[in-house]
């Protein structure tokens, strides 16, 4: 029965190169894209080119895009079936990160809102 195994697709190690697929061009493409996004982020701050209230959102978008570039081009995380385990683990990690950061900011903003103003607290 073991002959069945032959044509099966193997799981892919995160960051690993499939045989013969260690490609310099992938890393070069990743470097170029990441450089572009980094320069865009730094140029955005302090230049008057963009409506000021939009800058924080644009910076967040650029940062998320650059993390995506790192994941795909440097860590070789793809949507392929051999990568399902890696992608699922990543999705779980992202969920916990969003819960931690979002939940903390949400709760602390409410606590802050419900605090007595500092001026009203009698300071001896």
């Amino acid at each position: 029965m073991s002959e069945q195994k032959g044509d099966r697709q193997l799981d892919h190690a995160p960051g690993g190169h499939k045989e013969g697929a260690a490609r310099l061009s992938t890393y070069l493409a990743g470097l170029g894209l990441a450089l572009l996004l980094t320069v865009a982020s730094f140029a955005l701050v302090g230049s008057g080119a963009v409506w000021a209230p939009a800058i924080p959102i644009l910076l967040a978008v650029l940062a998320v895009a650059q993390m995506g570039v790192h994941l795909v081009f440097f860590l070789h995380i793809t949507s392929g079936p051999e990568n399902t385990n890696n992608t699922l683990a990543l999705a779980f990690g992202v969920m916990i990160v969003v819960l931690t950061v979002g939940g903390t900011l949400w709760i602390m903003a409410h606590l802050d809102h419900n605090m007595m103003p500092m001026a009203a607290v009698a300071v001896p």
Partner: peptide, 17 residues
């Protein structure tokens, strides 16, 4: 190689958390 890298990937995600 796959299981070791996957385990390390889980560690990295916990570090990111």
């Amino acid at each position: 190689q796959v299981t070791v890298a996957f385990g390390f990937w889980i560690f990295l995600l916990s570090d990111i958390i």
